[in-house]
């Protein structure tokens, strides 16, 4: 995705100018470790006869290259990429873990409360997190699930999950 320079910023943002090279080195180390794990499991798969035709041949090749490039990337000093940015901290930075928590709650709640209730609550909280006034957030949380029903259920004839709790309540009636 393209990084764009946005002018006219309304809110001054606190940023922590950490060296991107440090993070890249750490990420390369973690990726190399993941590559070693992948390589270990790839080495246990058959290489085939003639060699290279088996289920494990290409993963072995990928694993070796992965570890080699990962290690090289971790050892050499990475240059700062134009795409790399500064880590934000303060209130803005807390929005990301909060959004992540909302996403995980969405996944768990979907099977119980179904698509409409879960999406409505999710939209309300996410819009508030993104800085929406209460009134707009409430309108959004009601209108959007209705629009989704129109597009997916009615328009595309896709079966959406109604949730075990909602289904149980409906059945009991």
């Amino acid at each position: 995705m393209n990084q764009v320079t946005v002018v006219g910023t309304e809110v001054p943002i606190a940023v922590h100018a950490s060296a991107p090279g440090k993070g890249a080195r750490l990420a390369s180390c973690i990726l190399t470790a993941a590559g070693l794990f992948y390589l270990y499991h790839a080495s246990r798969l058959p290489l085939g006869d003639p060699p290279g035709t088996g289920v494990g041949a290409i993963p072995l090749l990928i694993g070796i290259c992965w570890v080699a490039f990962g290690a090289y990337s971790a050892v050499r000093i990475p240059k700062a990429s134009p795409e790399s940015g500064s880590w934000r901290h303060g209130r803005e930075a807390l929005r990301v873990p909060a959004a992540l928590a909302l996403c995980m709650i969405f996944i768990v709640a979907l099977s119980f409360f179904g698509i409409f209730l879960t999406t409505g609550v999710f939209l309300l909280l996410m819009a508030r997190l993104a800085g929406s006034p209460w009134k707009s957030a409430v309108i959004l949380s009601i209108a959007t699930p209705a629009a989704f029903w129109l597009v997916f259920s009615w328009g595309l004839k896709v079966s959406l999950p109604y949730g075990s709790l909602v289904s149980a309540v409906l059945r009991s009636r």
Binding site: A99, S111, I115, F122, L123, S132, S136
Partner: peptide
């Protein structure tokens, strides 16, 4: 258009869209 509304709606479309491909909670994870 307020950015918050786009953020929230795109999050929700992403989740519902991915779920409807294979009806899979794993895909959401």
């Amino acid at each position: 258009v307020p950015q918050y509304s786009l953020i929230a709606v795109i999050f929700a479309i992403s989740f519902i869209g991915v779920y409807t491909v294979r009806n899979s909670y794993w895909d959401l994870c």
